[in-house]
Design a binder for these strands. Sequence first.
RNA 1: GCCCCCGUAGCUCAGUGGAUAGAGCAUCCCCCUCCUAAGGGGAGGGUCACACGUUCGAUUCGUGUCGGGGGCACCA
Length: 561
Amino acid sequence: MKAHLTQLLATAAKSIAPDLNADSILLDRPKSAEHGDFSTNLAMILAKSLKQNPRAIATQIIAALPTNDYITKTEIAGAGFINFFLSAQSRQMVVRDIFTAGTRYGCNTQGHDAQGKPQKVQVEFVSANPTGPLHVGHGRGAAVGDCLARLLDASGWNVTREFYYNDAGAQIDNLTISVLARCKGISTEHESFPENGYRGEYINDIAAAYLTKHTVVADDIEVTASGDINNIESIRSFAVAYLRHEQDLDLKAFQIEFDVFSLESALYSEGKVEKTVNALVASGHTYELDDALWLKTTDFGDDKDRVMRKTDGGYTYFVPDVAYHAEKWNRGFVRVINEQGADHHSTITRVRAGLQALDVGIPAGWPDYVLHQMVTVMRGGEEVKLSKRAGSYVTLRDLIEEVGVDATRYFLAARRADSQLVFDIDLARTQTNDNPVFYIQYAHARICSVLSQWAALGNGTTVPLVSADLSPLTNAHEVALMQRLSEYPETVENAATELAPHVIANYLKELASDLHSYYNEYKFLIDDEAVKIARLSLISATQQVLKNGLDLLGVAAKERM
RNA sequence: GCCCCCGUAGCUCAGUGGAUAGAGCAUCCCCCUCCUAAGGGGAGGGUCACACGUUCGAUUCGUGUCGGGGGCACCA
């Protein structure tokens, strides 16, 4: 419908301002129903170049609109807005559109290339170090990243979900000596416990499992502990495998699946780090100073150069990162989105600088980043800071166990990633309209209930809702609901473009609100067969859109509460 | 000191170069002989942190100030 109107408007505008770029024609959804179904500020935009009063231009545009069946009324309002009022029939078309598209309603082809083929995009998210259980911050990354992947999938992209394990480097050394200390029975308070060691109870669990020669399986590896406390390598590989397994369980509990797990250690063992370093040296963007190798990241906008190879011979963390991203490019991802905590934002400039230095045709702004801010967990009006297992933070699994997967996912994805988030456990647990997850799921369940009751007592009626005569749908609630349903595809498109899953969460709240209002005002299972079928058709379409939207968030569309 | 995010109702948060800045909670009032009241309707509540610019028009864009958070390692 929007496309139809834009077309009409373009035709009219061309006759008045031939030079006008058609892309600059924008149709808005007015906030108030008094302002019609659509409005445009086109006349005001043209005022300057045409040197005329916006309202006068608006009059001309309206006069030049081709005749059509969609618009029943136009008006000029305010400083020069043109408001369009749709015919009842035009408004009702969305219901049939939804039935036709079904689960695909709201999908688009933004991600297709010129040949109409889905392009490859990778979403890398969570990517926690295997040094402890996943915490709420990882949960936010998981919820946002997974929704982004779903949004991109709905937008015609060929999506790969990827988790990168930093299973090499200093933090793993730290983990290893922490476990070693526990194997030796050193308490976390004792002075000989590693100063920056990990102190959560899970370290104790790992040590105990190691000493009793347990076997752990994670993703594609299986490691059996030697139980030998003098074998540092054995402790290291066992501890990493143990925590990867733990994180797998965390992800499973959160219903997040990945297509690919990449290991930092593999980049070393396969020589890709070395290869990248050689390429960077060959590029001329490096230099030796004070027994270290530096990358001139200042050539690419950084405020100081960065060390690549430390005086001890090891590489700094961003070198494997650059190697990893060069690999992503080689794997054919035209687009990569890294979902990370904002505390790692300083890596962005370095990784991009490294990729530019390689000079292999990678675009300057590649890859994209979505950064999320911190999460504060509240219970009973007080901040929850500790978990028994992890010691220093709230684990994702604790949260899921307490409030459930649906609420956890919803709450963590329902806020803009770049603002700090307060997770209110009490709110997430309530089962009233205070809780948006419940409110939305309830709207869906109510529709299911009505439809099943109709099916149960509807002997004789064989009129399929799909082909119902929709002309009875004319009251204010029905108009509002149909309008909202017709906004869904734009909403999905916008959320994908902005990489903003919270847009979907907000939309669903409003759609649910429209449904509840309608439900409260009108009955559906009534004697008037024509009106009944039309209304059931509308709520059935609403049910579909609620389900489609909830699917994008990874939240269940329950049939019963 | 420098860099990045944020600052909107008492609280948690949406929104946006345009028409009267929205929602939920909280407070107050109202609605079940009726498909789930796990719901709905209404009232009150705002200097969109502040200042100055750009613009026909700024809460939105720019600069600065002040708050809050995060980052400034040869850690990741």
